[in-house]
C-alpha cells in the first residue's frame, strides 16, 4: 500500500466544507446533517423488530411506516461514500481499532460504544449534532445552535481528563 497522503490544510478544508454547506442552503434550503439520517436508520431497525410498537411510539411513530424515506438518510449514505472515495484516493484506508498504543482494546471499545450511545441520545434531545446543529445552525447564527456548540465543547473538555487513558501511547 502506498503511503497515505498528508491531510489537507485545515483552513482550505474548512472553506471547502463551508462551500458545501452554502450549496446545501441555496439548493436544499436546509443545511447538512448526519444524526437525523442515523436516527432514521435506528427507527427502521427498531421497526423491523417490532413494527406496531415502533409505529405507535410517540417519537419514531411520527416518521411513519417508512422512516428511510427522508433526504438526510440519503445524505448520510452519501457521506459514507464520499468518505470512502476520498480515503481511497488518498490511500488512507486502514482496517484498525484506533487507540493509544498502550491502551487496551476493551477500554477503547467500551468508550466508543458508550460514547456512541450518549451521542445518539443527545443528538435527538438537541435535535441535531455537530453537523446539523452546531455547524449548520451556527452558520445561520441561530442562538440555540451556538449555545449547543458552546455546551458541546464544555462537556468535552469536562470529560476529557477521565477518558484520556484510551489515547495513552
Amino acid at each position: 500500500m502506498k503511503n497515505p497522503k498528508p491531510y489537507m490544510n485545515p483552513y482550505i478544508a474548512g472553506v471547502f466544507l463551508g462551500l458545501v454547506l452554502l450549496a446545501s442552503f441555496l439548493v436544499l434550503g436546509a443545511g447538512l446533517g448526519a444524526s437525523s439520517g442515523m436516527a432514521r436508520i435506528a427507527a427502521a431497525f427498531e421497526s423491523s423488530i417490532a413494527k406496531s410498537h415502533t409505529l405507535s411510539s410517540e417519537y419514531f411513530g411520527k416518521w411513519g411506516s417508512n422512516p428511510l424515506n427522508y433526504y438526510l438518510v440519503f445524505m448520510f449514505v452519501g457521506t459514507i461514500l464520499g468518505g470512502l472515495f476520498s480515503a481511497l484516493s488518498s490511500s488512507r484506508i486502514s482496517f484498525q481499532l484506533e487507540k493509544g498504543k498502550s491502551a487496551s482494546a476493551f477500554l477503547r471499545i467500551f468508550f466508543a460504544l458508550s460514547g456512541g450511545i450518549l451521542i445518539g441520545y443527545a443528538s435527538r434531545l438537541a435535535q441535531g449534532c455537530t453537523s446539523g446543529q452546531a455547524l449548520t445552525g451556527g452558520a445561520l447564527l441561530l442562538t440555540g445552535s451556538i449555545v449547543f456548540l458552546i455546551c458541546l465543547f464544555a462537556g468535552g473538555y469536562l470529560a476529557a481528563y477521565f477518558v484520556r487513558r484510551q489515547w495513552n501511547d
Binding site: 458508550s114 460514547g115 450511545i117 443528538s123 455537530t130 449547543f148 464544555a154 470529560a159
Partner: peptide
C-alpha cells in the same frame, strides 16, 4: 443535549 453530546464526543 450539548453537554451530553460533548461527553459522548470525547469518549
Amino acid at each position: 443535549g450539548g453537554l451530553i453530546f460533548g461527553i459522548g464526543f470525547v469518549m
